[in-house]
Amino acid sequence: MNDDIFVGNEDGLVNGNNESIVHCGGNIYSPNISAFALPEDGKINHSASAAAVMEDEINCAAEGGDVRAQIELACSNLKGNGKPLDHAEAFRWYREAAELGNCHAQFSVGFMYLEGLGVPRDYKQAFFWFSMAAEQGDASAQANLAWLYEHGIGVPQNDAEAIRWYRLAAINEDPYAQLSLGLMYLRGCGFPQNPSAAYVWISIAAWNGVAEAEDEQEKLEQAMTPDQISLAWQRAKACISSGYKDCADI
């Protein structure tokens, strides 16, 4: 992995300049259907007045502590949805949901601190919120937390912690964490180099569609024997086929 800041989305890690990485899927607030006038065909009236009712309900629910509504408002302000973008308001609602314990919102708050979106850039706060989400099992947060440890940003540099969090994210199927873990094994960061383990994780990342991993895999193969490659690939396949449960010894 290069030295750009990488952050996670639903599909893995993307470059930090992409604002769409914050979690905006799967938490959409659905207001009470009784708030809408239903015509005889049973379809919801999507008129301007109905939209206004929906917006009022979402705002009311968010103010009342409904996490789904808070995330919906955060996403709406981040994406615009026909209105001017408002990163500060997006941050406010993500922060509300994050403080109520939602790991996706915690990740998003960490990312916004990391990139300075809607709030002054603060690496220590990014570390704090990534840690909160990572402890709850959010793979994107785990990968970003590992990156901070690897590069000593917002926290003292610590290869052992970077490896630990990259491995957790890798087992949670984050493909760029899989690549990063393999590269740390290849470089021998804080421990002897382990080309076999490096090949396993880099191969898994390549299998998951990471183009950079395919290049690294080809380079590694030039320095390995056919037997070493075969054995490492068998370990990679066993890890993948087990749903990443049979990867603890890698």
Rank of each mutant, 00 (worst) to 15 (best):
M112P: 00
A98S: 13
I71T: 09
G65T: 12
D66N: 15
G116T: 12
G65S: 05
A88C: 02
F111Y: 02
Y94W: 03
G64Q: 05
Q70W: 12
G101D: 12
A88E: 14
L85M: 14
N102I: 02
L78M: 15
Q106N: 05
E63I: 04
G64W: 02
A105C: 07
G64F: 02
A69K: 10
I71V: 07
E115M: 15
G110D: 01
K83F: 03
E63K: 07
R68C: 04
Q70C: 01
G65N: 05
H87K: 14
F91P: 11
F91M: 06
W93H: 13
L78N: 15
A88P: 10
G82H: 12
H104K: 09
E63H: 06
D66A: 11
D66W: 07
D86H: 10
A52D: 11
E96A: 11
M112Q: 15
A74F: 06
A61N: 03
D86I: 05
G80Y: 11
F91D: 03
R95L: 13
G64Y: 03
C103W: 01
D56E: 12
E96I: 09
Y113V: 08
E99L: 02
R92N: 14
P84A: 15
S76F: 00
M112T: 10
E55F: 10
E115A: 14
P84S: 11
A97G: 13
N59A: 00
F91E: 10
D66H: 07
R68W: 03
E72W: 05
N77Q: 12
A105M: 01
F111Q: 03
M54H: 05
G65I: 12
E89V: 02
H104A: 12
C60S: 09
H104M: 04
F107I: 06
A52H: 13
A98I: 04
Q70V: 01
M54K: 09
Y113A: 03
M54S: 06
V109Y: 03
E96K: 15
W93T: 07
C60P: 01
V109D: 04
D66E: 08
E99I: 08
F107H: 10
Y94E: 04
L85C: 12
F107W: 03
G110L: 06
A69I: 09
W93F: 13
A62N: 05
D56F: 08
F111M: 08
C75E: 01
